[in-house]
Amino acid sequence: MVTTDVAVKFTLNGIPMERDVPPNWTLLRFLRDGLGFTGTKCGCEIGECGACTVIFNGEAVNACLVLAPQIDGASIWTIEGVASSGRKLHPIQQAFVECDAVHCGFCSPGMVMSTVALLLHNRIPSNAVLKESLAGNLCRCTGYLQIIEAVRKAAESMDDMHLEKFRR
């Protein structure tokens, strides 16, 4: 089977990149196997679990359902880009830690990315909107209450400037 790689230009976590990607790769595979960004988790690979949630042009999407060539021209944020420096957590991540919203941790990157996308669009989400925004992210450690508490805490305590970079 002969396939031709596709040249793509995109921005990952604020850094402009140019790569050739195989047309039969998903964005998820490209992030993990092509770039070594393994923070984005591979769960169900059918768009049901949300473990691979990334921000794609300002919106939460399942990286397992995006073909790698489709990222041309896009701005993508993954969990690796959430904290501003290597050592200090982003306020959303800090809220997850403080609320014990992390159990096994497998869903956490996706949960955090869905939270970023939610707060980008809605700084003071109602409980209904909050739950709907996380409905595409499964947690099998039954930590939903703590996760919702963490999102609420982040929404209330965080300064707007912590969301600015994700808009680019």
Partner: peptide
């Protein structure tokens, strides 16, 4: 439809 992630694509 689906989830927010699905509706966005």
């Amino acid at each position: 439809v689906g989830s927010l992630q699905i509706r966005n694509r």
